[in-house]
């Protein structure tokens, strides 16, 4: 088990060269394409969008070692570093909803602010609670190596 868990460190330690960036993009494109074929199979009452399926697919491919970290790491880390910029059009999209904001705008923004903080704090402390139960009620190991 321990050997299996350390798989990532072993992979980086081997220092195989990273795949060329076009191959990395190709892997992302292939996963997105397959995900876009799977997404419509879910019923309208239980929507699962393409990128969420893609995230699960890429994780499964990595966990089964079909795709190695060095095949996707460089492009993936670059995309993650861009995420705040990629969100700018979504932010500016609010320009199309200014009329909604005029009606109940202040109340909505306040509720969203409260909701964001509540989700962050409640989920974080619920997790801490469950980990406390794991440790003190079931006496199971809770240590994580860094």
């Amino acid at each position: 088990m321990a050997a299996n868990d350390k798989v990532n460190k072993a992979e980086t330690a081997k220092e195989e060269p990273a795949s060329p960036i076009l191959i990395q993009m190709g892997i992302f494109a292939a996963i997105l394409f397959v995900s876009s074929l799977i997404s419509p199979l879910f019923p309208a009452s239980f929507p699962v969008p393409t990128p969420v399926i893609g995230l699960i697919l890429l994780y499964v491919l990595l966990a089964t070692h079909i795709v190695k970290l060095r095949n996707v790491e460089k492009f993936g880390d670059f995309m993650i570093s861009l995420i705040a910029f990629l969100f700018v059009p979504s932010g500016i999209q609010l320009a199309a909803s200014l009329d909604i904001l005029k009606a109940q705008g202040v109340q909505i923004v306040i509720v969203v602010l409260i909701a964001t903080i509540v989700l962050l704090v409640v989920v974080a402390y619920t997790t801490a609670g469950f980990i406390w139960i794991r440790k003190n009620v079931f006496h199971r190991d809770v240590n994580i190596d860094d």
Partner: peptide, 25 residues
């Protein structure tokens, strides 16, 4: 133009499989 940038949220979202897998333990 906004839609073109917005589209890149697709590969950016699936890229989070990488930090997820890094701490598979």
């Amino acid at each position: 133009g906004g839609n073109i940038i917005f589209w890149f949220l697709n590969p950016a979202t699936i890229a989070f499989a990488i930090p997820l897998y890094r701490r598979n333990d």
